[in-house]
């Protein structure tokens, strides 16, 4: 099983990278298309964070969240946290998470304008981390 060598974890809710993290405020977090090939004996793995926000603005508050760790360092499951990792989508962005999908704004289908359903403002983020091969 792969062993994680370093993960950019955050101080929850403040959008500040933990000292030593690869994440920075200057947008220099590795992009999977630009990141260097892993050094010998190391591999890249994806961490995925999904935030559901209070409206369609990325700086609106987090109302729900999920996290899956392709590095295998952390297991998560439904109901395992009471506080979100960030207060807003923007805080996650400033901690180095990259948005790769956002839910579109769709017109309301006639007759269902007041119906509520799935969480509405969904943003998918990722980080690429190195693990031992």
């Amino acid at each position: 099983m792969a062993r994680t060598v370093r993960l950019p974890m955050t101080r929850a809710g403040r959008g500040e990278p933990v000292p030593g993290s690869r994440a920075g405020r200057d947008g220099t977090l590795p992009d999977c298309r630009r990141v260097s090939p892993p050094t010998v004996g190391r591999m890249h793995r994806q961490q995925v964070l999904v935030l559901w926000l209070g409206d369609s603005n990325l700086d609106s508050p987090v109302v729900a969240w999920s996290f899956w760790d392709g590095s295998g360092q952390r297991d998560t499951m439904a109901g395992d946290e009471s506080q979100p990792p960030y207060q807003s989508g923007l805080a996650a962005l400033r901690d180095g998470w990259r948005v790769f999908q956002a839910s579109p704004l769709l017109p309301h289908y006639p007759g269902t304008e007041t119906q509520t359903s799935y969480l509405k403002y969904e943003f998918w983020f990722d980080k690429i981390v190195e693990v031992d091969a």
Binding site: V50, A64, W65, S66, T76, G79, E81, S82, Y118, L119
Partner: peptide, 9 residues
Amino acid sequence: AIGRYQNIR
């Protein structure tokens, strides 16, 4: 279908 959500305020 809502299984994607892990934690909700």
